[in-house]
């Protein structure tokens, strides 16, 4: 059952592919963004998983000899979450403007009207 030990990484792959599917296959712009969000969460999971040591604790030196989880990936993901939120906010704002100027948030409609103009 070696694959169970890396279950987190399988979930990472699954989430990434789910998100990618939504981005590619869905015509609704909001649904595409949801797909993007799922992908981003997958990457967060990858980073958090790699820093975890089984039985590890917070890296505070207190003289005793014990295992520590790496704090660095968590810090990185904190930053990546902020980046993800900003991207998502901006993308949603763009969708609002698309709705205002094209009257639709379906990809086919938007690019169809773009071709007319």
């Amino acid at each position: 059952m070696a694959w169970l030990g890396i279950l987190n990484y399988w979930i990472f792959v699954l989430l990434l592919m789910t998100g990618m599917y939504a981005i590619v296959a869905k015509g609704n712009l909001i649904k595409k963004l949801i797909g993007l969000g799922i992908c981003q969460s997958a990457v967060f999971l990858l980073f958090i998983s790699m820093g975890k040591v089984v039985g590890g604790t917070a890296p505070i030196l207190d003289g005793s000899d014990r295992a520590y989880s790496s704090p660095l990936p968590q810090v990185l993901i904190l930053t990546a979450i902020v980046v993800g939120i900003s991207t998502m906010a901006l993308a949603l704002a763009v969708v609002v403007r698309i709705r205002e100027s094209f009257g639709s948030i379906e990809e086919a409609d938007v690019y169809g009207k773009e071709a007319e103009a």
């Binding site: 698309i98 094209f102 938007v110």
Partner: peptide, 29 residues
């Protein structure tokens, strides 16, 4: 208004690009 639809495409593709880069950096780390 084409600017908005062009930017949306760019945001999606640009974010995927950045995400792939991040995954790669994670694996190297």
């Amino acid at each position: 208004r084409t600017a908005f639809s062009a930017v949306f495409k760019y945001i999606i593709m640009g974010s995927i690009g950045a995400m792939f880069y991040l995954i790669g950096v994670g694996l190297v780390y």
